[in-house]
Design a protein around this nucleic acid. Sequence first.
RNA 1: UGGGCUAUGGUGUAAUGGUAACACUGCAGAUUCUGGUCCUGCCUUUCCUGGUUCGAGUCCGGGUAGCCCAACCA
Length: 617
Amino acid sequence: MNENNSSNVTTPPRPLERGTGGEAGRAASFIEQKVINDLAEGKNGGRFQTRFPPEPNGYLHIGHAKAIALDFGLAKKYGGTCNLRFDDTNPQKEDTEYIEAIEQDIKWLGFQWANVYYASDYFQQLWDFAVWLIKQGRAYVDEQTSEQIAQQKCTTTSPGTNSPFRDRPVEENLRLFEYMNSGKCEPGTLVLRAKIDMAHPNMLFRDPLIYRVLNIPHLKTGNRWNAYPMYDFTHGQSDYLEGVTHSWCTLEFVEHRPLYDLFVTWMREWIADCGSQAESGSQLSTFRSTLVAPHLENSQLSTYQGPRQTEFNKLNLNYTLMSKRNLLALVKNGFVSGWDDPRMPTICAFRRRGYSPESIVNFIQKIGYTTYDALNDFALLESAVREDLNQRATRVAAVINPVKLVITNYPEGQVEELEAVNNPERPEDGTHTIEFSRELWIERDDFQKVAEKKFMRLAPGKEVRLKNAYIIKCDEEHPFDEDADGNVTTIYATYDPETRSGLPGADRKIKGKTLHWLSCGHCLPAEVRMYERLWQVENPRDELARLQGEGLSAIEAMQQMMNPDSLHVLQHCYIEKFVRDMPALTYLQFQRIGYFNIDTDSTPDHLVFNKTVGLKS
RNA sequence: UGGGCUAUGGUGUAAUGGUAACACUGCAGAUUCUGGUCCUGCCUUUCCUGGUUCGAGUCCGGGUAGCCCAACCA
């Protein structure tokens, strides 16, 4: 190999500002402002703790990246801690596959958790708390069907009515709650409900279900539990038990906040009550430190004011469907090749597609955090990825729609080694060698039999420069061969030996542009996968709802919205030998075409590339 | 026929009662051995309506529009 070949073919990640907003010139979001204020006021003794709480029921998508950048990003920026907590309260949808993928994606994005917790870690405390609520007369076992319960909750516009089981005696409630968890209780027959207000304007307060029977083994707790707590009865309490100070979530949870606060308040009462029944002060202290935020010092516990939920707008992107449920349907129905199909909005898909983690995080910074339900233009994301890849991608020549070009005055059998810059944005990345010879591949699009008005590339009698090589001129007498259908099969040109890049004669100015090219005898065949948007409608979320409202199934609606041309596999492409042994996911720029990366399917004997995003044109 | 949240150029975001700005998109130009990058310029903005105030995008009232809530999902 040539000495010029640079050793750092894969460009190392640039050091990057990881703060969430607040960089020079950028105002802090309202969320960040609250953190700044809380810390300035010395709330929670100056302690600051967040959590990222995914349910392990699917892969993370770019919407999660927005939450991740906030939860982890602000914790890091302001000296707090962020824990990863799996909200694993529904064993019917959860899988360890997802747990591993979620951890991998968070790390890939460049963030670190302090601890990994599971909501299921607190099942015992939640159970004990529920028992206490029953004893307090604040919870009861209902044995109506879900339809009956729904009917009694009534509609958003009119008050509900009480369950006939609302005033069941405490002893009976305790017995039935125990039975719910026995494994003998038929799922769907009994639920535990909090006794609040069936006429409350907030539907969530109409005696919410807090425990249901599933009789399904749990990833973490196995067969220990058969009755499982619901989200609203778990989330705030988990935050509290962990010592979370700032609990951030998306806007659809705004009306959950009063319930969140209520259950946290009740839990404080329960803990205080347990404490008052303890026999001595030291036991109380022991009890508190075991139960509440075990990692916290007593002094930190004493200043802990409890978690505060704040909501921000989730990420919506045009031409993108984000909900995990629908992404799962795409995978299950084979509409895409998997969770990491490069057309998916998942983190793993963006990784495979060639997006850098920095570009995703930068995009998140740019769109910010507000309480407005925005629909972001995908161009904002593409601009972020181009900005980052322009700095780091290794430039190579690839011809994706080849046509043969013969340099008629170049000696047959002669081969020259020329120098190509790896990245003009980073001279320190060095150069590599390319071969020039009589027969070359160029892009079919770079030649026109009769040049259009603004066409500045190759055409009969016209001059262009071949990148890093010579100025050539297309023959006027016999410029090309064509087949019976008029397709050009070979183009003929002559080169000007004085104009080789680096020679004095190379400075000659010509009208034509600079073309990329490959020597036929010195390049490799390649498969290139070109992607377009998966959806043809700008707002798939709303359109899906609309079509389903018209009676279509989700599958039918998705088929109707899907872009039939979202994937083009180009089998007969050529690329420089330079890339042959580069690792999968290497960031590349195919000069004059776009940013590409090496697919995870690629092998040295069968190179496969994904189009990340095109160059601006 | 209830409750909650929201409204600033085509898109997103800022302006914390005091000159409406930044990025993206689009258009035009300059430079260019990538029709890329870099550089220059341009286009386009406070939902409506009352009020408070010396002064309102910002505060208040009334409209209008959009989103969320009637899962044994999270």
